[in-house]
Design a protein around this nucleic acid. Structure first.
Length: 255
DNA sequence: ATGGTGGCGCGGCCA
């Protein structure tokens, strides 16, 4: 299974990029975040023409997640238990016997904001849900835009970002607690270039200067980690005209 | 430079 995650920051604007990317990479599963697309407007045909199934949970203007898959998508869930949340950030499904969680973790805006408290409570509810689910699904993958840089090596300028949202200790702790359930950030299981990032701010020529963060992650259970043969960031889509501010992260599993 | 750019949708929010 070749599986990838990509925050596209509007599927309508980025559809050509996504279709071209699928034609080139032939991924089995692509998890999209920030589709910003109502369900009734989802471009099903663009994907079915390539032989892909789709599942989506969208809303107008903000958020929105989708799964694009060669194999059937079953047992779809879009809610976290105990979390009343109109924001469409979760799409869990089973594909090829693997339980897959496509996640768009709240950004949090700034550590002193209400949105940051929402981010932490959202992560806490997610942890509770995943703890329960992993007992039933030894083969599971969590992937998406986590809006958390796990460690300082995932940050272009750790001193400047210290304590700031996306890098602060409370959210890093929340991520570690999620990993402690038995998940591995598979990107770090392989040799990687220093300064490997998945997101660059649109402003201040951040991409050209490689001033980025690695906040798009693929987490796998122990059983699947041993079946992971590669994980890499594909920076090419970020070079295109009118790109998303994120670029795809890809992992391959023998399942 | 407390800015900068981009998407949505047409003013202001969100990232």
């Amino acid at each position: 299974m070749k599986i990838a995650t990509w925050n596209v920051n509007s599927l309508r604007v980025r559809l050509d990029h996504v279709i071209d990317w699928l034609k080139r990479e032939h991924a089995d599963v692509l998890a999209l975040q920030e589709t910003k697309t109502r369900d009734e407007n989802f471009p099903i045909g663009a994907f079915s023409d390539l032989g892909y199934n789709v599942s989506f949970s969208g809303q107008p203007t903000y958020n929105g997640v989708a799964l694009i898959s060669r194999q059937n998508i079953t047992d779809v869930r879009t809610e976290i238990d105990g979390l009343e949340d109109p924001q469409r950030r979760v799409l869990a499904a089973t594909i090829d016997g693997v339980r897959i969680y496509n996640l768009y973790v709240p950004n949090g805006q700034s550590v002193d904001s209400e949105k940051f408290q929402y981010k932490l409570s959202w992560l806490d509810a997610l942890k509770t849900q995943i703890a329960l689910d992993l007992a039933q699904h030894p083969n599971a993958i969590l992937l998406g835009d986590f809006n958390i840089a796990p460690e300082d090596r995932d940050v272009h300028d750790p001193a400047a970002w210290k304590g700031k949202v996306l890098c602060s200790e409370p959210e890093r702790k929340a991520l570690r607690e999620l990993l402690d359930l038995g998940l591995i950030d598979v990107f770090r299981g392989f040799e990687q270039d220093a300064k490997s990032y998945s997101w660059w701010d649109y402003r201040a020529a951040a991409f050209r200067r490689n001033r980025g963060l690695r906040i798009d992650l693929i987490l796998a259970t122990e059983a699947l980690k041993d079946r992971c043969s590669t994980c890499r960031i594909d920076v090419e889509p970020r070079r295109l005209q009118r790109p998303s501010d994120h670029t795809p992260v890809i992992a391959e599993f023998s399942v």
